[in-house]
Write a protein that binds this DNA or RNA. Sequence first.
DNA 1: CTTGATGATTACAG
DNA 2: CTGTAATCATCAAG
Length: 451
Amino acid sequence: MEEQSHLMHTLGGVTLAGHPVALPVPHDGADARNKQDIGDILHQIMTITDQSLDEAQAKKHGLNCHRMKPALFSVLCEIKEKTGLSIRGSQDEDPPDPQLMRLDNMLLAEGVSGPEKGGGAAAVAAATAAVGVGADNSIEHSDYRAKLTQIRQIYHTELEKYEQACNEFTTHVMNLLREQSRTRPISPKEIERMVNIIHRKFSSIQMQLKQSTCEAVMILRSRFLDARRKRRNFSKQATEILNEYFYSHLSNPYPSEEAKEELAKKCAITVSQVSNWFGNKRIRYKKNIGKFQEEANLYAAKTAVTAAQAVAAAVQNSQTNSPATPSSGFQMKDEDFQLDAAEDKNNLLNNMFTGSSGSYSLPGSGDMFMSMSSLNGSYQPAQVSVPGQTQGDSIRHAIGQSLGYSDGLRGNPLYSPHGLNGNGGWHDAVTPSSVTSPIEGANSVHSDTSN
DNA sequence: CTTGATGATTACAG
DNA sequence: CTGTAATCATCAAG
């Protein structure tokens, strides 16, 4: 038994008990004397590895040339046959471990395994590109990417190490077995099986590696998600751009996919962030229109001024100059936006100087307000601290003022939710908002704005 | 610290 | 899948 454990030790600690490599120990019984002889020779074989290379080589040679060697070989064959240790069903190939497959799939999906430079790196690159340059998120993304790369690196180095060790060990064992096959019967199948066993051992180690890698990725992920939840406000400029778009499309504030992408690019945020923003904006605007009245006016005026400053200047004939436009920095570059803005502008100007405020189609014009005020003659935007100016005549004046950003624009019905119907939904831009249930609409607005 | 604003998430509906 | 409504969690001003 001591020899056996010794052999096992030389094989690197892999448990070989019960395996054909472990030398068959004859049962006690009839061939006790033979056993003694064989024992001696076996002992020599076993101690080969203990000796120096030359010595061992010499001894090996001696053993191989020993006149009793063929006899020993046949005896060993016989013993092997008798002890039934010859391999029968060596093809007990274990089916692909579902757990391992799960881990593999996950690692692949996370871009940890798979093509070294492709897969994960590409995915992360895409994610980063989607976020845009300079956004705060990209920092988090790059942080995430860096950590993921780190994990991937460790994973691959470890994997390589394991593979290398596995290969080394396998060749070592195979050489050993081949060498021993000269003195004892070892079939290629046995070697193969031995290799399989080694591989299985190593793959279980690999599995552990994969498991811990998966865990690391999971932890990283959850941290990343947490970090994402840790919101950062968008830049002022981004908010401005979004508001510009929102208020210039107040009648139908649902940017198309392309518009969202455009906005995302301009604001250095993601498309889904744009969607979030518009979702939040719509709902919050609708919930409390009054609160946004000022903002609406501001942006409406801003849009008008910015979009067609030249025209404005011409029309206004330098009577109402636009001082210190707060929208400096924002410029309409997108053709679509420009169109919209120009349209608004034209409508606004037309209306401004014709006084036909009731019929123009400027998005966000005062339809709702008008209808409400017709219902309740003394309606004033409750949220506005300054008492609303008299309507009707003063509208022209108010608009003119609004272009000049005078305080007087506050509470003016310049931009009201004309796109909102009584149910709280946005009309199609075509319908000039005949409020279906004015009472309810007015009430809701009132109650909303009164807080 | 309190409070309002705001970005993100979730459940649900169409 | 998109949008709404409610809600959460954090920011930022006071």
